[in-house]
Computed example of a mutant assay.
Amino acid sequence: MRFRFIYRDVFTALFGILLFSLGSHPICLSQEEPDASIVSTLTILIQDTSPDASMLQKLAQRLILPKIGGPFLLDDLQQSIDALKKSGLFRKIHVSDPVETDGKINLVFELTPFSLIKKICIDGEFPMLEQDILREIDRRVGDPFDPKTTTEMEKNIIRYLLKEGYIDPKVSLVSQKDEKDGRIALTVSIQKGPFYRIRRVALQENRSGFDFEFLTRLKTWQASRLFWDMARFA
Rank of each mutant, 00 (worst) to 15 (best):
R2M: 00
R2Q: 08
R2P: 03
F5Y: 00
I6T: 11
I6N: 06
R8D: 06
V10F: 03
F15D: 02
I17E: 05
L18H: 11
L19Y: 01
L19A: 13
L19S: 08
F20D: 01
G23M: 03
H25D: 04
I27F: 05
C28Q: 11
C28H: 09
Q31F: 09
P34E: 15
S40L: 12
T41S: 15
L42R: 15
I44M: 05
L45I: 11
D48E: 10
S50I: 09
P51W: 02
A53G: 06
R62H: 09
L63Y: 07
L63T: 14
P66N: 11
P66F: 03
K67D: 12
I68N: 12
G69N: 13
L73E: 15
D76T: 09
D76R: 06
L77Y: 03
L77K: 12
Q78R: 15
S80W: 04
D82T: 14
A83N: 11
K85W: 10
K86F: 05
S87L: 10
G88K: 13
F90S: 07
H94W: 05
H94R: 09
V95S: 08
D97V: 14
D97F: 08
D102H: 09
K104T: 10
I105Q: 12
F109H: 06
P113G: 05
P113E: 05
S115N: 08
S115G: 14
L116T: 04
K118Y: 01
I122L: 04
I122H: 07
D123G: 03
G124L: 03
L129I: 04
I137Q: 06
R139E: 05
R140F: 00
P144F: 03
D146G: 03
P147T: 03
K148W: 00
K148Y: 00
T149Y: 01
T149E: 02
T150S: 02
T150Q: 05
M153H: 05
N156W: 00
N156S: 13
I157P: 03
R159Q: 02
Y160H: 10
L161R: 02
L162R: 08
L162V: 09
P169Q: 04
P169T: 01
K170W: 00
S172K: 10
S172F: 01
L173W: 00
L173N: 01
V174L: 06
S175W: 02
K177I: 13
K180G: 02
K180F: 07
D181L: 01
I184L: 05
I184Q: 01
A185N: 05
A185Q: 04
A185Y: 03
L186F: 06
L186Y: 00
L186T: 03
G193R: 10
P194Q: 06
P194H: 01
R199C: 08
R200Q: 12
R200V: 03
R200P: 01
A202Q: 10
A202I: 12
L203K: 07
E205W: 00
N206D: 06
G209D: 11
F210C: 04
F212G: 04
F212Y: 15
L215Q: 13
T216W: 04
L218Q: 10
L218I: 12
T220L: 04
Q222S: 07
S224D: 12
R225L: 10
R225C: 13
D229H: 12
M230D: 14
R232C: 08
R232Y: 09
R232D: 02
A234E: 15
